[in-house]
């Protein structure tokens, strides 16, 4: 059996992927955000990038707070505006800086649109920093994105625990089933306070 989607050297290459509107949006906006911050995409869009048959309104993204300053946020806002984007829940850069500094999320979309949007927030918890540190590089259609590794995505989705989240976890687990490092996965589950025996029944393909 040939596996068509693989992780190698911390990279995933999706050759000949037909780009949907979410992919095009993510590539455009994260190219800008990536100039100012180290970022990693977490949440449902990662499952979608890996083929899940659903959509989402927002692309959850963590940034490293080390680069956070009012000047960086000002320049980010300028560049977003020049490229046709707006931050619709904090429209002035000074309030955007306050949002990020206080652990709140910025929502960025195309000007005068709301959906889709990127939900941008600073890493705060140890698992957030671990996700940034171990991010994967994903290539598709001339675009490069940084995404959370499957073990962290699965653990976090199991932690959230809704039907949609468990489905995302199962999807990622089954797409990468031979590549999943079970000890690493269990380590992240332990960081999040998940008892493996509570969720092991879901992790089969």
């Amino acid at each position: 059996m040939i596996v068509m989607i693989e992780i190698k050297d911390n990279r995933v290459i999706l050759e000949k992927k037909v780009m949907n509107v979410l992919d095009k949006f993510a590539c455009e906006i994260l190219r800008i955000i990536g100039r100012f911050f180290d970022y990693v995409i977490v949440g449902g869009y990662v499952a979608i990038l890996f083929g899940r048959s659903r959509t989402t309104e927002d692309i959850d993204t963590l940034i490293h707070p080390d680069a956070l300053s009012i000047d960086v946020v000002r320049r980010l806002y300028e560049e977003l505006e020049e490229n046709g984007f707006w931050c619709f829940n904090a429209q002035k850069y000074a309030s955007g800086f306050e949002y990020l500094k206080n652990g709140l999320a910025l929502r960025i979309a195309r000007i005068n649109e709301i959906i889709p949007n990127v939900e941008l927030k600073c890493a705060k918890k140890p698992i957030d920093f671990e996700t940034l540190k171990s991010r994967l590089t994903l290539y598709m259609g001339g675009c490069r994105l940084y995404v959370c590794p499957p073990e962290i995505c699965i653990a976090y989705k199991l932690y959230l625990g809704s039907q949609k989240d468990i489905e995302d976890a199962v999807h990622i687990f089954c797409v990468f089933k031979d590549k999943i490092k079970l000890n690493t996965l269990r380590g992240y589950m332990s960081m999040l306070g998940i008892d493996y025996s509570d969720v092991s029944r879901f992790l089969r393909c």
Binding site: M1, I2, V3, M4, I5, F50, G51, R52, S53, V170, H171, F173, C174, V175, K177, C205
Partner: peptide, 8 residues
């Protein structure tokens, strides 16, 4: 569906 994604 994950099997389809994996194998196509």
């Amino acid at each position: 569906w994950a099997k389809i994604v994996r194998e196509t």
